[in-house]
Amino acid sequence: GKMTGIVKWFNADKGFAFITPDDGSKDVFVHFSAIQNDGYKSLDEGQKVSFTIESGAKGPAAGNVTSL
Results as ranks from 00 to 15, higher is better:
residue 1 G to D: 09
residue 1 G to R: 14
residue 1 G to T: 12
residue 1 G to Y: 12
residue 1 G to F: 12
residue 1 G to I: 11
residue 1 G to P: 09
residue 1 G to H: 10
residue 2 K to Q: 11
residue 2 K to G: 06
residue 2 K to V: 12
residue 2 K to L: 13
residue 2 K to M: 13
residue 2 K to D: 04
residue 2 K to I: 11
residue 2 K to C: 14
residue 3 M to N: 04
residue 3 M to D: 02
residue 3 M to L: 08
residue 3 M to Y: 07
residue 4 T to W: 09
residue 4 T to Q: 06
residue 4 T to M: 06
residue 4 T to S: 06
residue 4 T to I: 05
residue 5 G to W: 01
residue 5 G to H: 01
residue 5 G to F: 02
residue 5 G to R: 00
residue 5 G to I: 02
residue 5 G to V: 01
residue 5 G to Q: 00
residue 6 I to L: 04
residue 6 I to N: 03
residue 6 I to Q: 04
residue 6 I to D: 01
residue 6 I to S: 04
residue 6 I to C: 06
residue 6 I to F: 07
residue 6 I to G: 01
residue 6 I to V: 13
residue 6 I to H: 04
residue 7 V to S: 00
residue 7 V to P: 00
residue 7 V to I: 14
residue 7 V to L: 10
residue 7 V to Y: 01
residue 7 V to H: 00
residue 8 K to G: 02
residue 8 K to R: 12
residue 8 K to L: 08
residue 8 K to H: 06
residue 9 W to K: 04
residue 9 W to E: 03
residue 9 W to D: 01
residue 9 W to V: 03
residue 9 W to A: 03
residue 9 W to T: 03
residue 10 F to L: 12
residue 10 F to M: 10
residue 10 F to W: 11
residue 10 F to K: 08
residue 11 N to W: 08
residue 11 N to E: 04
residue 11 N to T: 06
residue 11 N to D: 10
residue 11 N to R: 04
residue 12 A to V: 12
residue 12 A to N: 07
residue 12 A to T: 08
residue 12 A to L: 12
residue 12 A to E: 06
residue 12 A to P: 12
residue 12 A to H: 09
residue 12 A to F: 09
residue 13 D to V: 12
residue 13 D to W: 09
residue 13 D to K: 10
residue 13 D to F: 09
residue 13 D to E: 13
residue 13 D to A: 13
residue 13 D to G: 08
residue 14 K to G: 05
residue 14 K to T: 06
residue 14 K to Y: 09
residue 14 K to L: 10
residue 14 K to C: 15
residue 15 G to Y: 05
residue 15 G to K: 08
residue 15 G to T: 08
residue 15 G to P: 01
residue 16 F to A: 01
residue 16 F to S: 02
residue 16 F to K: 01
residue 16 F to T: 04
residue 17 A to H: 00
residue 17 A to T: 01
residue 18 F to E: 02
residue 18 F to V: 12
residue 18 F to Y: 12
residue 18 F to I: 13
residue 18 F to T: 04
residue 18 F to R: 11
residue 18 F to S: 05
residue 19 I to L: 03
residue 19 I to V: 07
residue 19 I to W: 00
residue 20 T to V: 08
residue 20 T to D: 01
residue 20 T to Y: 02
residue 20 T to M: 08
residue 21 P to D: 01
residue 21 P to E: 01
residue 21 P to S: 02
residue 21 P to W: 03
residue 21 P to R: 02
residue 21 P to G: 01
residue 21 P to Y: 04
residue 21 P to A: 02
residue 23 D to I: 02
residue 23 D to Q: 03
residue 23 D to N: 07
residue 23 D to F: 03
residue 23 D to E: 03
residue 23 D to P: 01
residue 24 G to F: 03
residue 24 G to V: 01
residue 24 G to D: 03
residue 24 G to Q: 03
residue 25 S to C: 05
residue 25 S to W: 03
residue 25 S to H: 04
residue 25 S to F: 03
residue 25 S to Y: 03
residue 25 S to D: 04
residue 26 K to R: 10
residue 26 K to W: 05
residue 26 K to C: 15
residue 26 K to P: 13
residue 27 D to G: 09
residue 27 D to Q: 05
residue 27 D to I: 06
residue 27 D to N: 08
residue 27 D to S: 09
residue 28 V to Q: 04
residue 28 V to D: 00
residue 28 V to P: 00
residue 28 V to I: 13
residue 29 F to T: 05
residue 29 F to H: 05
residue 30 V to L: 06
residue 31 H to I: 09
residue 31 H to E: 10
residue 31 H to C: 15
residue 31 H to A: 14
residue 31 H to F: 13
residue 32 F to E: 04
residue 32 F to K: 04
residue 32 F to W: 12
residue 32 F to I: 08
residue 33 S to Y: 07
residue 33 S to K: 07
residue 33 S to L: 05
residue 33 S to C: 15
residue 33 S to A: 09
residue 33 S to R: 06
residue 33 S to P: 03
residue 34 A to R: 10
residue 34 A to T: 08
residue 35 I to V: 06
residue 35 I to D: 03
residue 35 I to Q: 02
residue 35 I to R: 01
residue 36 Q to D: 11
residue 36 Q to H: 11
residue 36 Q to N: 11
residue 36 Q to C: 14
residue 36 Q to E: 10
residue 36 Q to R: 06
residue 37 N to T: 12
residue 37 N to Q: 11
residue 37 N to H: 10
residue 38 D to I: 11
residue 38 D to V: 09
residue 38 D to Y: 11
residue 39 G to K: 06
residue 39 G to Q: 08
residue 39 G to T: 07
residue 39 G to N: 08
residue 39 G to W: 08
residue 40 Y to H: 09
residue 40 Y to D: 08
residue 40 Y to N: 11
residue 40 Y to C: 15
residue 41 K to N: 11
residue 41 K to G: 10
residue 41 K to F: 13
residue 41 K to H: 12
residue 42 S to M: 11
residue 42 S to T: 11
residue 42 S to H: 11
residue 42 S to D: 09
residue 42 S to W: 13
residue 43 L to H: 02
residue 43 L to D: 01
residue 43 L to E: 01
residue 43 L to K: 01
residue 44 D to F: 15
residue 44 D to A: 13
residue 44 D to R: 15
residue 45 E to K: 12
residue 45 E to C: 15
residue 45 E to G: 06
residue 45 E to W: 12
residue 46 G to Y: 03
residue 46 G to I: 02
residue 46 G to R: 02
residue 46 G to M: 03
residue 46 G to W: 03
residue 47 Q to Y: 05
residue 47 Q to M: 13
residue 47 Q to V: 09
residue 48 K to L: 08
residue 48 K to Q: 11
residue 48 K to M: 08
residue 49 V to E: 00
residue 49 V to W: 01
residue 49 V to F: 02
residue 50 S to P: 01
residue 50 S to M: 10
residue 50 S to A: 11
residue 50 S to I: 13
residue 50 S to R: 07
residue 50 S to K: 06
residue 51 F to N: 00
residue 51 F to R: 00
residue 51 F to C: 02
residue 51 F to T: 00
residue 52 T to H: 07
residue 52 T to E: 07
residue 52 T to K: 06
residue 52 T to M: 11
residue 52 T to L: 11
residue 52 T to Y: 08
residue 52 T to R: 06
residue 52 T to C: 14
residue 52 T to N: 07
residue 52 T to A: 07
residue 53 I to R: 07
residue 53 I to E: 02
residue 53 I to H: 06
residue 53 I to L: 11
residue 54 E to S: 06
residue 54 E to P: 05
residue 54 E to Y: 08
residue 54 E to H: 04
residue 54 E to A: 04
residue 54 E to G: 07
residue 55 S to H: 12
residue 55 S to Y: 10
residue 55 S to W: 12
residue 55 S to K: 10
residue 55 S to V: 09
residue 56 G to L: 08
residue 56 G to Q: 10
residue 56 G to T: 14
residue 56 G to A: 11
residue 56 G to N: 07
residue 56 G to D: 14
residue 56 G to Y: 11
residue 57 A to E: 14
residue 57 A to H: 12
residue 57 A to R: 07
residue 58 K to H: 15
residue 58 K to S: 15
residue 58 K to W: 13
residue 58 K to Y: 14
residue 58 K to G: 14
residue 58 K to L: 14
residue 59 G to R: 08
residue 59 G to W: 09
residue 59 G to D: 14
residue 59 G to V: 11
residue 59 G to T: 07
residue 60 P to G: 07
residue 60 P to N: 07
residue 60 P to D: 14
residue 60 P to K: 05
residue 60 P to T: 10
residue 60 P to H: 07
residue 60 P to V: 07
residue 61 A to T: 13
residue 61 A to C: 15
residue 61 A to I: 14
residue 62 A to V: 11
residue 62 A to K: 07
residue 62 A to D: 13
residue 62 A to G: 09
residue 62 A to E: 12
residue 62 A to S: 11
residue 62 A to M: 08
residue 63 G to Q: 11
residue 63 G to W: 02
residue 63 G to P: 10
residue 64 N to W: 06
residue 64 N to M: 09
residue 65 V to C: 15
residue 66 T to P: 15
residue 66 T to I: 14
residue 66 T to V: 14
residue 66 T to D: 15
residue 66 T to E: 15
residue 66 T to Q: 12
residue 66 T to L: 03
residue 67 S to Q: 12
residue 67 S to A: 06
residue 67 S to L: 05
residue 67 S to G: 14
residue 68 L to K: 15
residue 68 L to N: 15
residue 68 L to F: 01
residue 68 L to C: 15
residue 68 L to H: 15
